[in-house]
Design a protein around this nucleic acid. Structure first.
Length: 410
DNA sequence: CGTCCACAGGAATGACGGGCGG
DNA sequence: CCGCCCGTCATTCCTGTGGACG
């Protein structure tokens, strides 16, 4: 009987075309589930740390560490949104504002966003940072609340702008009389304190929490839980879940990655008209994700970055130097009739491509023959050909023969 | 052992478009 | 509409440097 029902499900789903997915939303990155497996103790810990606000007392600043996909953001949002609704019950005026510093990656934008979240309208741009900070402080003080500021991916703003923002925020309570501020910083980088002024660091990390990566078993539980919500019954095989969790565990124990694998595996299976998502689909999904990531990255590059990449492609050597690439890049710019950037600039573009995993650049010394970067392609040549042939102008350059092939070497 | 190559990569500065307040 | 300030991209100028060569 149960066996019969099981098959009925499968067949019926198949006929109804939308057979595999029940709810795709559940697999999105910003979805916060009601149940976060293997994070119960961290939820309790964070909950206990912020609980004082329910009695109208300021809670400690918190510093949260952990690599991507370890549940930092999910746990924080989960706890704080529950806290906020609980606070309403108790009549405590608590508010939290979540900011991702990779999106709002300047001091100005952070203050602008904070201001907007407490109902103070601030122009997109046009004011000085100090002015926006002042407006925020005034608005905050007059609204008489306990304000919890969550700064996610805080490392990105610190590495590019320094710790001025945090210094400001951790000292802001001194100038407030009717409101109080708590800062929760979330960092992907465990070495972040090396970049911080010790005073800022100590005041920011009144409490510290570390999120360990998930292991394969924990990821399995997460995927199992989530697949029940996102896929129709009987559509997801255990083998698929096992392999997805193993793959993600081998990376950083990244749950986000694991969920991506599952979602894409579902899409692959759907396209193939399969009625069951298997480990094969997950394997396909892995290739798919990587491929899409790279294609999208390349398509969104500026023209100059594309030309740099093309130069490496045209040089077609196992490893090129900055100088060699600059020569070819120079020719390509001439070919297109557009202006060229300096070698200094090209160096940072190469570094950016390296950070994206499209190129691999390593500084080496060739002794008597100087010091340079050894640069090589990190992606397949056919992929480059595919992406560039979509653009008329770049397509022509794919066939371009560099003139400076062997000019020196003696 | 010192030299000196071929760059790396930091700092300062400028050009430019967006977007405000007055 | 002007003047101001922002962020971003790019240039200019600069000091630093690993190690093969002589």
């Amino acid at each position: 009987m149960t066996k019969h029902n099981l098959l009925d499900d499968v067949f019926e789903n198949f006929v109804n075309n939308d057979h595999l997915f029940k709810d795709r939303e559940v697999l999105r990155h910003d979805y916060i589930p009601d149940n976060l497996p293997h994070r119960e103790d961290l939820i309790r810990l964070l909950g206990a740390t912020v609980a004082p606000v329910l009695k109208n007392a300021r809670c400690s600043n918190i510093f949260i560490y952990g690599k991507t996909g370890t549940g930092k953001t999910a746990v924080t949002k989960f706890v704080l949104s529950h806290l906020e609704s609980k606070a309403k019950e108790y009549g405590a005026s608590v508010k939290f504002c979540y900011l991702n510093c990779r999106i709002t990656n300047s001091e100005y934008r952070v203050f602008a966003n904070l201001s907007n979240s407490i109902g103070v309208t601030v122009p997109f741009t046009g004011l000085s940072v100090g002015e926006v900070a002042d407006r925020f402080k005034v608005g905050l003080d007059s609204s008489r609340i306990l304000f919890i500021i969550v700064l996610d991916e805080i490392d990105s703003i610190i590495k590019s702008r320094g710790d001025g923002l945090l210094y400001e925020l951790t000292r802001i309570n001194e100038t407030l009389t009717k409101s109080k501020v708590t800062v929760i910083g979330i960092s992907n980088d465990l070495r972040l304190k090396d970049f911080l002024d010790p005073r800022v660091f100590s005041s920011l990390s009144e409490e510290e929490m570390v999120f360990r990566p998930y292991n394969a078993n924990e990821l399995r539980d997460i995927l199992f839980e989530r697949s029940k919500l996102s896929f129709n019954k009987g559509c997801m095989s255990e083998a698929a879940i096992s392999i997805a969790s193993a793959l993600a565990a081998a990376e950083h124990g990244d749950a986000r990655r694991a969920l991506d694998l599952l979602r894409v595996a579902g899409e692959v299976a759907e396209r193939n008209g399969a009625i069951l998502i298997t480990d094969v689909h997950v394997r396909d999904a892995e290739k798919h994700i990587e491929h899409n990531r790279v294609v999208e990255a390349i398509e969104n590059l500026t023209l100059h970055s594309k030309l740099v990449l093309l130069s490496v492609y045209l040089l077609n050597k196992s490893s090129a130097t900055t100088g060699e690439i600059y020569d070819i890049y120079n020719e390509l710019c001439g070919e297109l009739g557009n202006n060229l950037l300096t070698q200094r600039r090209l160096g940072t573009l190469v570094n950016e491509l390296d950070a994206m995993g499209i190129l691999n650049a390593k500084v080496i010394s060739m002794g008597r023959y100087g010091r340079t970067k050894k640069i090589r392609l990190e992606i397949s040549r056919t992929l480059i050909k595919d992406v560039f042939s979509a653009d008329d102008r770049l397509d022509k350059l794919l066939k371009y023969k560099p003139k400076t092939v062997s000019k020196n070497k003696k």
